[in-house]
């Protein structure tokens, strides 16, 4: 299972400014990986290229052994005519109904089930949205700020649950939070401005899984590396 980006060049339509110039990077093996970088550097654009929403670019995106690539972002909404429960039940394939119940329980969504999406808080909305993607068939799930507005404790619980339930899948987590990226992610792709060379730097994260504690010094070192790379 490998995601490889090779010599990607891209300019926004109607703009003269390059977003990517000869961008190359790769993510190997399944796991919880991160895409990190300052705002406006092109993280969402890159995610859309990987998921196939943007096709007008030069270079190659190779997704070996990844047939189903899904991209989710934090502004998504559920249709307003259903309650959360009705929607989740409808979009979950029958064999995954027990997984749905497990995720609802772990993500603390039980109080939201009978509500409509618009009635939920932003954090609950993001958790609900992420849950429905986790119930689909996917090999790679790109989570673009999917846990924004979720408190730190719940966020940690959710990430650890995802890592425990989907050890054979690949995740690309887009976040601006250096601590969580350094702590939970296995490989961190730091995306930099197009005039820096290389435009993407790969770093190793602490890949915390909740079982073995991580040394504070290692975490700090990793955070420093990320900040310096960006």
């Amino acid at each position: 299972m490998q995601l490889e980006l090779k010599d990607i060049n891209y300019t926004y339509p109607g703009s003269a400014r390059n977003v990517f110039r000869q961008l190359s990077c790769q993510v190997t093996a399944p796991g919880f990986h991160a895409l990190f970088g300052p705002s406006g550097v092109g993280k969402t654009t890159l995610a859309k290229m990987i998921s196939g929403s943007i096709t007008a670019f030069s270079g190659a995106v190779r997704t070996d052994q990844m047939t189903h690539v899904l991209y989710t972002y934090n502004l998504e909404r559920l249709p307003g005519w259903h309650s959360v429960q009705d929607h989740l039940t409808q979009i979950t394939p029958p064999p995954k109904h027990s997984r749905m119940e497990e995720l609802v329980d772990s993500f603390g969504l039980e109080p939201c089930l009978n509500s409509r999406f618009a009635q939920l808080s932003l954090g609950q909305q993001n958790r609900t949205n992420l849950t429905r993607y986790l119930l689909q068939d996917f090999d790679l799930l790109i989570m673009d700020e999917s846990l924004a507005n979720v408190d730190e404790i719940t966020k940690e619980k959710i990430i650890l649950k995802i890592k425990a339930l989907y050890p054979d899948r690949c995740f690309l987590y887009i976040s601006h939070n250096v601590v969580e990226v350094a702590k939970f992610c296995k490989q961190i792709l730091v995306l930099r401005s197009y005039h820096k060379n290389p435009q993407a730097v790969s770093l190793q994260g602490q890949d915390f899984n909740g079982r073995q504690p991580i040394a504070e010094k290692d975490l700090e070192q990793c955070m420093l590396e990320i900040v310096n790379a960006a």
Binding site: S51, L70, Y71, T72, Y73, L75, E76, R77, L78, P79, I91, N129, R132, Y133, Q136
Partner: peptide, 12 residues
Amino acid sequence: AEIEHFFESTRR
């Protein structure tokens, strides 16, 4: 887009 994206990506 923010509602349709899910159904488009999951081919529903």
